[in-house]
Design a protein around this nucleic acid. Structure first.
Length: 328
DNA sequence: GGCCCTCTTTAGGGCCTT
């Protein structure tokens, strides 16, 4: 049984305006001055204990992308304002005054609740590149994250030394030479840095929502395996969502116009033009960030709605996996 | 491997991720 996307109609336009588009607007505001955080190990001769972590901030030329987002965003906000107006008029024209007064109060409360909740949610889009599909036998060789709130150091990316041969350079362009460079960390060194980075983006008392495309089947289980390989666990307050679930909803809502739920198909469907090699982690993250914006707008989906209807925790996947293994 | 769909649920096949 699929979890239905259920949003009371009266919540949709205003909540979206106050939550998601607010987030995107902030991103747009900051994107032209976006700085990336790239981690590297410095110094030492192969002994990680003698080396130290440094953070390099890089200015990113995203002016064109920013303009692109801004243009689309203005259209979306305009549509949302129209929707709100339509809703309001519809209700004012009914004769059941008492019910409308109740709805009005309820609506304001809901908007306020959603606005407050959204402000406390850090939405991070992420992607990994690996040496292959098997989480048991393959390894992560690149990871990238982007906090959709924007701001300084809103992105994080790093190559990862997998300590094994990289057989699929033709897919992502990441070679053995690249991951074997002295400054490229191994996963066991990167995990605490990654946890610290995500924590640094979390608002006081706020929630974390990490989103990846096909994340439920691929990225999150892969991360779980990599963490457990070094006796670490995904922090229990990390919540995840799989953007492919939204793509399925888009396919159902909008019929055959979206022919596939792949990231590439979504990119083409929304006419997103970003230069950069596909299947590099940050390039895919940039695409997903924009695709996610469009999908949530199309589905009139708020951040609280994302959390309520699509979020899952790593422990749920771990438990499911254990149950299935034990039942075999 | 997980999810979804269907010619289904006591199953099988296709899609998506690198």
């Amino acid at each position: 049984m699929r979890a239905a996307v259920c949003f009371p109609h009266f919540q949709l336009p205003k909540c979206q305006f106050h939550t998601l588009s607010g987030s995107w607007r902030e991103k747009i505001h900051n994107i032209s001055t976006k700085r990336s955080t790239i981690y590297n190990l410095q110094g030492g001769n192969g002994n990680t204990n003698s080396r130290r972590w440094t953070r390099k901030s890089l200015s990113t030329n995203t002016e064109g992308i920013g303009k692109n987002i801004l243009s689309r965003q203005n259209n979306n906000i305009g549509q949302q304002i129209t929707d709100v107006t339509t809703f309001t008029h519809t209700n004012l024209n009914t004769s059941r005054v008492e019910i409308n007064e109740f709805k009005s109060i309820h609506l304001e409360e809901k908007i306020s609740e959603n606005k407050d909740e959204s402000k406390l949610v850090t939405v991070i889009v992420f992607d990994i590149e690996t040496t292959g599909f098997s989480r048991e036998n393959e390894r992560i060789i690149e990871i990238a994250l982007q906090d959709l709130s924007g701001g300084v150091e809103s992105t994080f990316e790093s190559l990862v030394n997998p300590d094994k041969f990289v057989p699929n350079e033709h897919i992502h362009g990441i070679s053995n030479y690249m991951v074997k460079q002295p400054g490229v960390p191994r996963m066991k060194d990167l995990i605490p840095i990654l946890i610290d980075y995500v924590k640094s983006r979390q608002k006081p008392g706020g929630k974390l929502l990490l989103i990846a495309h096909n994340g439920k089947s691929f990225d999150v289980p892969f991360l779980i395996n990599e963490f457990s390989r070094y006796s670490c666990e995904i922090p229990s307050d990390w919540e995840f969502a799989d953007s492919m679930s939204l793509a399925r909803e888009i396919m159902k809502v909008q019929g055959s116009k979206l022919s596939s739920k792949s990231l590439q198909a979504l990119k083409e469907y929304y006419g997103i033009q970003i230069t950069g090699k596909a299947h590099r982690a940050m390039a895919d993250v940039n695409v997903l960030a924009l695709v996610l914006q469009r999908m949530t707008c199309d589905l009139k989906l708020t951040v609280p709605g994302l959390l309520e209807n699509y979020a899952f925790r790593a422990s749920e996947l771990s438990n499911n996996s254990k149950k299935k293994k034990s039942s075999r």
